[in-house]
Design a protein around this nucleic acid. Structure first.
Lengths: 145, 145
DNA sequence: ATATATTAAGACCTTTTTATCTTTTAATTG
DNA sequence: CAATTAAAAGATAAAAAGGTCTTAATATAT
């Protein structure tokens, strides 16, 4: 898979939280785990990472839960989620794992990969969580497992 | 990373073997592991997988080693190596790991991902090991770690 | 035929990723 | 302020990926 399992859950959770935030609602861990069909305790860990990285806001106590202010959502990119969970390796490092790979000393698949990598990064940098939440709200996209 | 470590080593090994095969030489495990800077025993396992999948030919005994007949090389695609080692998940499955994701019920990032995925598969299906071996022979590409 | 060089196979170990459980901290409400 | 609800943190466990070691099988050359 392109993202780790943790990252898949992280993106799914973020989109779900964003969708609820569009309605001015917070969502708790239990609901998130159920809605995105992820293991609850593992999801909690991932949400902690997202919270530490200011990707989601968490509020403790009764009526607490997770939310993403709409203002933030509009400037929050997929790139930031992937970076927070999987790091930037996918976006930056050589497809064959060669540290010495660069345009002057390219690896055997360097050129074949370049455009794919560029487009992936472009997509991750351009796509906002707001875009994704709107897609869900409109019924154009789904988080069905 | 986009490929597993095993797959990175597998591609690197295949390209190295192909390059030697262009010169009519076989390469043994020790040389391969040294040239691509991979752990020898682990590389042996990966070469077994490649051999079982008819991606490389192996010859035992003195003057044995690995080779790829040039005729095969010209029709051998990156896709087959990745499929043999990592499977087809990267090429086929939903970016968010949703089994139910399809064009009628797309996941939140389905459309953003579609073209990237298509281009990746296209590249893996079009790039032959012969292409990569020629690049190495010409000194246009490198397996330097 | 025998010794040797080489890959194949299988058991084993280590590290990382995925996942769970328990305890602590913090916010809300009565 | 006490009780309750919810997330944070940390310790632990299971599974998968990454990696090693030993023994077997097989081809070659003498």
């Amino acid at each position: 898979m392109i993202f780790s399992k943790a990252c898949e859950y992280g993106i799914r959770a973020t989109v779900l939280i964003a969708q609820h935030s569009l309605n001015g609602e917070r969502v708790g861990l239990k609901v998130i785990a159920k809605e995105i069909a992820s293991p609850e305790a593992f999801t909690a860990k991932i949400l902690q990472t997202l919270s530490r990285n200011k990707i989601v806001s968490s509020i403790k106590g009764p009526r607490g839960g997770f939310e993403i202010p709409i203002v933030n959502m509009e400037n929050l990119r997929l790139y930031q989620i992937v970076k927070a969970i999987d790091g930037e390796e996918l976006m930056e490092e050589c497809g064959l794992g060669l540290k010495a790979c660069n345009p002057e000393k390219p690896c055997p698949i360097h050129h074949q990969f370049k455009d794919i990598r560029t487009n992936l990064v472009k997509m991750l940098r351009e796509t906002t969580v707001h875009d994704l939440a709107i897609g869900m709200k409109d019924g154009a996209t789904f988080l069905k497992v």
